[in-house]
Amino acid sequence: MITTQEFTSALKEKMPDLFQKDYDARDTVDIIFACIPRALKNADTVDIPGIGQISAHSEGARKQVKFKPS
């Protein structure tokens, strides 16, 4: 499992010109992680290139989240 800190560090390493400070990269990670559940609540599909798609479906009163790897 990758932690938020590992994800933040990887982001800084891959794009050092954009993320010079820890808090810049951390804010970006937080925004990304906040967008995923919001999109699922709105019944949108989240497509993460190289990883897959996450979607939410309602079956009656029950909601189900599905992941389709790419």
Rank of each mutant, 00 (worst) to 15 (best):
M1K: 14
M1N: 09
I2Y: 12
I2V: 15
T4G: 13
T4D: 13
T4L: 14
Q5Y: 09
Q5F: 06
E6A: 03
F7N: 04
F7Y: 11
T8E: 02
S9D: 15
S9K: 07
S9R: 10
A10Y: 08
L11R: 10
K12R: 15
E13A: 15
K14T: 13
K14H: 13
K14M: 13
P16S: 12
D17L: 03
Q20P: 05
Q20G: 13
D22A: 09
D22P: 01
D22M: 05
D22V: 04
D22R: 04
Y23G: 02
Y23W: 10
Y23I: 09
D24Q: 11
D24V: 01
A25N: 03
D27N: 10
D27R: 08
T28N: 14
T28F: 08
V29F: 08
V29S: 08
V29C: 13
V29R: 14
D30V: 02
I31K: 09
I32N: 11
I32P: 07
I32W: 12
I32M: 14
A34E: 05
A34W: 01
C35E: 11
C35P: 02
I36M: 07
I36E: 02
I36D: 02
I36L: 01
P37C: 04
R38E: 01
A39T: 02
L40K: 01
K41C: 09
K41V: 15
N42L: 03
N42Q: 12
N42F: 00
A43K: 04
T45D: 08
T45L: 01
T45N: 05
V46H: 00
V46S: 01
D47C: 02
D47L: 00
D47P: 00
I48N: 12
P49A: 15
G50N: 07
G50R: 12
G52E: 11
G52F: 07
I54D: 12
S55F: 08
S55D: 12
S55Y: 11
A56F: 02
H57M: 10
S58P: 01
S58C: 07
S58H: 07
S58Q: 12
E59T: 00
E59V: 05
E59G: 08
G60Q: 08
A61C: 09
A61L: 12
R62L: 15
R62S: 12
V65A: 14
V65H: 04
V65M: 13
V65I: 14
V65S: 14
K66T: 12
K66Q: 14
K66M: 09
K68W: 03
K68M: 04
P69I: 13
S70C: 03
S70F: 01
